[in-house]
Amino acid sequence: MMALPAGQLRSHFDYKVHALVYPVLPGDHLVIDEPGSAVSTLLGSCVAACIRDKTRGVGGLNHFLLPGSDQSQSSRYGVYAMEVLINNILSQGSQRANLEAKVFGGAEVIATGGQTRVGKKNAMFVLDYLKSEGVSVVAEDLGGTSARRVYFFPADGKVRVQYMAATETKRAAEGEAKLTQRLETKPTTGSVELFS
């Protein structure tokens, strides 16, 4: 997905943060270049990397999880989610050296799948990935047992985190369970096109 042309993406004015907010759903990502606006997502055991170019104020977030128990299989989704977000920011003319990250999520919410420590697995992945790619993590809020609503303002890097009550946490867990089920039953893979 390209960075804004604003107006082409679904946004709403959010009175909690007094800003135009672009929501990001589980499994998706979004980059914006619009001072004063935020990207936002609701995280249970999923994680979000909020990444911005600190010199240009362009940035966005992803929302992903690592499905299943096969480490190398599930990592593919995480690596993909991180790469599309970073590539999208770099395609706006940013340099990798100017990127900084804040990471959120990875709570142990009551998952319908009955898996344990899913949140921790997701949290460890995002920290390891950013370390291995040399992107500095300037803030993190990971773990716990409550879902979080994250608002990220790429222009100045500010983040507002709202911890959710039990009802919203349950809703986040259900949404993520659906994503897990979708990825496990119908794995997302790329396409192949041979030219000759």
């Binding site: 690596v79 993909y80 790469e83 893979t189 192949v192 096109e193 030219f195």
Partner: peptide, 21 residues
């Protein structure tokens, strides 16, 4: 993709990749 054909790439795979593929 058009540029890839022009430089005579053999094919175009999109991520995430499937190891078997």
């Amino acid at each position: 993709k058009d540029r890839a054909r022009a430089v005579r790439a053999t094919g175009w795979l999109t991520k995430p990749f499937d190891p078997k593929q």
